[in-house]
Nucleic acid binder design. Structure first.
Length: 214
DNA sequence: CGTGCGATTATCT
DNA sequence: GATAATCGCACGC
């Protein structure tokens, strides 16, 4: 099953997640072999941007599988998802990390910009915002069809499950409704792969009484 | 080595 | 006006 076929992305997002591992995303001369993804299950998932129904930002997730959902976060980072499931379900897979397999120089020029020391090779796309930075993906790619082989943001490759071990665990940094947000083991990664991002619990923002500030 | 915090703005309430 | 699917650096052990 080639990544250019859209059909396999229209099933259950939790089945699709492990099958995405080992495939390749390409953009602007850089190719990244995915080592880690996270599932977001639409309106039923408190951690999903689609949890409260369609909004201008989340509407792309309610559409056809195989399109990119890109969002801008923390005022400085972009994150890239692939829309999955039948139309209306708003499921998506967040591309969290991978290994740069082509275009290392281009990836490095973007990731190392403004730094004194270059990043370690395995850190080039180790984390969702690092991955988009290395690829050069931003908001203008929101809605792009990653199943179109002629597109500029493309999902490539074939089934890789054969001979691979996939691990699952709690999603990273999800602080949405549902308490700790870790009730869903919907993070998938290639076991032992050095490019998988480090786990960080959701940042706990302790409420500070406005009067106590200063 | 691990843990904590500030940066900075699109998006939603 | 508040929040956030993060990152990199500072600091303490």
């Amino acid at each position: 099953m080639s990544s250019h076929d859209r059909g396999w992305l229209a099933g259950d997002v939790l089945d699709i997640a492990p099958r995405l591992l080992g495939r390749v995303v390409r953009h602007a001369g850089v190719a990244i072999r995915l080592s880690e993804v996270e599932a977001y299950c639409g309106p039923d998932d408190p951690g999903s941007h689609a949890f409260r129904g369609p909004t201008p930002r989340s509407q792309i997730m309610f559409g056809q599988a195989g399109h990119a959902y890109v969002y801008f976060s923390y005022g400085m980072h972009h994150c890239l998802n692939v829309v999955c499931g039948p139309p209306g379900t708003a499921a998506a897979l967040l591309l969290r990390a991978g290994e740069v397999v082509e275009g290392e120089a281009a990836a490095r020029s973007r990731r190392d910009r403004g730094r004194q020391r270059p990043h370690a090779f395995v850190d080039l796309a180790r984390g969702p915002a690092r991955l988009t930075s290395a690829l050069g993906v931003d908001l203008q790619h929101n809605g792009a069809d990653v199943c179109d082989p002629a597109g500029d943001l493309v999902l490539d490759g074939h089934e890789q499950l054969e001979g691979r071990s996939v691990s699952t665990g709690a999603r990273v940094g999800v602080s949405g409704a549902g308490g700790d947000g870790s009730a869903y083991p919907w993070r998938f990664w290639i076991t032992g792969d050095p490019t998988v991002s480090a786990y960080r619990a959701a940042k706990s923002r302790r409420a500070v009484p406005p009067s106590a500030a200063r």
